[in-house]
Every structure is written in structure tokens, then in C-alpha cells.
């Protein structure tokens, strides 16, 4: 066989090629680094509380509006809580809601998109009409209504409703319910295109099940746009959560998020403006970092670049 090769180049998957491209994108790397640093800092908030001897949650009405010093790195807030560690603790709530909400939305969107794309026909039509319908809803008012729903009318127990967890998971669930549409369209389009590709036909001639085709062929081939969409969605979820919490229907005390820390910012703006500026600035930095990273991933995952090998 004249074509047989004595030696082969080492195995290079598309992910290796993509990582090489991403590594050249400074904005995306910076975004990723800032995001990782933010997550690490936020996770370290209990450690900071112990090391600095302050509390992010205990109110101390004798020490309100303290200026910055060695223990209160950013001073204290209107209830005497340490602003720095409080920002970090709230940051973890905001970041984790962003992550969970984006993941949840992607998961639901992937499922619905793949079902629509694989089944075609009327199932596809109904699902896509439904998706279009959700896209054209006034998002924020609907979010507010969903956030204000009386959970007891849906059969949840009073203890659960009063616990902090209810507020947290309610937000995750709401952004999942309204945020899946973009990914669903993406995955459906990808599924429809891939279903005609010959490697999928080859699997179908073997009698492969729809689930096999989705798992082995469709998902690995659509995962890159899904990753990009999930990353960018995380930014939008963080913004949505902050808006809901700011309006008072999101995260409820004793928990706090960057958005809920701004609930009474309008009164603070003339007395202690920095308390109104910090949380928003952190949201801005985080979301900018996420968008940098997302756009960088999008460029690095470009299939036209993949094809070049």
C-alpha cells in the first residue's frame, strides 16, 4: 500500500487546536483570569472574616458607616456589617446563581432543541412556536411576576418558602425557565444540519437509537456553540438576578447578593455613595470579564478555523 504511513503525527484533537487559538487571545485570557480570581475571592470570604476578625452578616448598630481601616478594608455599611467580606459573600450568591442559571437554561435548551431537531414534523413545529412565544414576552415584568408568585398556591410548604434557599432556587429556576430559548434554537439548527451529515446516516443504517445519535454525534458536534452561549448567558443571568434583587423580589435577607445590596442604594447615594458604587462596580467587572471570555471562546471555536486543521 503506497499510502500507508510509517509514522503518524501525534494525535491532535480539535480541542487542542482551539486551546492554542484561545491562548493567543489576550482579552479572553484576561476575562477568564478576572473571573477565576473573582470566584476564588468570593469563596474565600469566610476565611477573610476570620483573618480580619469581622463579620459579613452580624449587624452592629454602634459601628455604622465606618471608614476603611486595617480590619474593615472597605469600611462598614448602614447596619455596621463589614463591607468587604459582605461584598465577597454576596458575590458568591450572584456568581453561583449566574452559573447555575446559565447551566440550567443551557440544559433545558439543549434538550428541547435536540428533541425538536430529531423529531421534526409537528413536535418540532409546536416546540418552536412555544420557543418563539417565550422570546417575544416582556422579559423583566414576567420575571418580576414569577419572582412574586405565591409558592403556597403551588403546594410548597411554609417552612421552605420562608427559608433563604427558596429565594435562591426560585431565581435559578426562573432564569432557567425564561433563558433556554436561545440555546434551544442553536441546538435545533445544529441538529437539523448534522442529521443530514453522512456520519449520522452511517449510524442510522446501523439502527442506532435517537438517543445514541444525540449523545455520540449531535452533542459533541454542537457543544462549542453551547459553551459560548452558556458563558454569555451567565453574564445576562447575573444582570437579571441583580435587577430582581434590586427591585426586592430576588434574593431575600438574611442572604444577600450584589443586586440586593443595592436595594436601598438610592437613599445611600447622597450619604454613603461608595456603598452604592461597590456592588454595581463588581457586577460590571464580572460581566465584562464574562463577555470577553465568551467572545474569545466564540472566535477560538470558529468551525472555519477547525476545518483548517
Amino acid at each position: 500500500m503506497s499510502e500507508a504511513m510509517a509514522t503518524l503525527p501525534p494525535a491532535v484533537s480539535v480541542w487542542t487546536l482551539r486551546w492554542r487559538r484561545l491562548r493567543r487571545d489576550r482579552a479572553a485570557l484576561a476575562g477568564g483570569a478576572v473571573l477565576l480570581a473573582m470566584v476564588a475571592l468570593c469563596l474565600a470570604s469566610p476565611w477573610f472574616e476570620r483573618a480580619l476578625g469581622v463579620s459579613a452578616s452580624d449587624t452592629d448598630l454602634f459601628n455604622r458607616f465606618q471608614p476603611s481601616d486595617a480590619s474593615h478594608l472597605l469600611g462598614s455599611d448602614d447596619a455596621g456589617r463589614d463591607e468587604f467580606t459582605r461584598l465577597l459573600a454576596a458575590g458568591w450568591i450572584s456568581l453561583s446563581i449566574g452559573l447555575l442559571g446559565a447551566l440550567g437554561a443551557s440544559l433545558v435548551g439543549t434538550l428541547i432543541g435536540a428533541i425538536a431537531g430529531m423529531s421534526r414534523g409537528w413536535v418540532d413545529m409546536v416546540l418552536m412556536r412555544f420557543t418563539d412565544g417565550i422570546i417575544a414576552l416582556p422579559t423583566l415584568p414576567l420575571l418580576i411576576i414569577l419572582a412574586a408568585l405565591d409558592l403556597s398556591k403551588l403546594g410548597f410548604s411554609q417552612e421552605f418558602i420562608r427559608s433563604g434557599a427558596a429565594g435562591y432556587w426560585r431565581i435559578v429556576l426562573i432564569v432557567t425557565l425564561l433563558g433556554w430559548t436561545g440555546v434551544a434554537r442553536l441546538v435545533r439548527a445544529g441538529t437539523l444540519a448534522l442529521a443530514e451529515r453522512e456520519f449520522v446516516l452511517a449510524a442510522r443504517t446501523q439502527g442506532a437509537s435517537a438517543w445514541w445519535i444525540i449523545r455520540v454525534h449531535i452533542l459533541p458536534n454542537t457543544v462549542s456553540p453551547i459553551i459560548v452561549a452558556t458563558t454569555l448567558a451567565m453574564g445576562r443571568v447575573i444582570l437579571a438576578e441583580s435587577a430582581l434583587s434590586f427591585l426586592g423580589v430576588g434574593i431575600q435577607p438574611p442572604q444577600s447578593s450584589w443586586g440586593s445590596m443595592l436595594t436601598n442604594a438610592q437613599e445611600l447615594i447622597s450619604t454613603a455613595p461608595e456603598l452604592a458604587l461597590y456592588p454595581g462596580a463588581l457586577i460590571l467587572i464580572t460581566v465584562v470579564a464574562i463577555n470577553f471570555l465568551g467572545d474569545g471562546l466564540q472566535a477560538a471555536f470558529d468551525p472555519r478555523e477547525d476545518a483548517r486543521g
Binding site: G235, F246, L262, A265, I269, L277, V288
Partner: peptide, 22 residues
């Protein structure tokens, strides 16, 4: 443009109030 898509609108409003009103 990046700042525009990344900023919480209510907070941007607060910043403008702080700067131009307060």
C-alpha cells in the same frame, strides 16, 4: 460597547444621579 452590554442599567442610573444630581 462592552461596558454598555455589561452594566446593570439601574446601577448606571444611580451613578449618573450621583454625578450629575448629587
Amino acid at each position: 460597547a462592552y461596558l454598555g452590554i455589561s452594566v446593570p442599567s439601574f446601577w448606571l442610573g444611580l451613578v449618573l444621579i450621583y454625578a450629575f444630581a448629587v
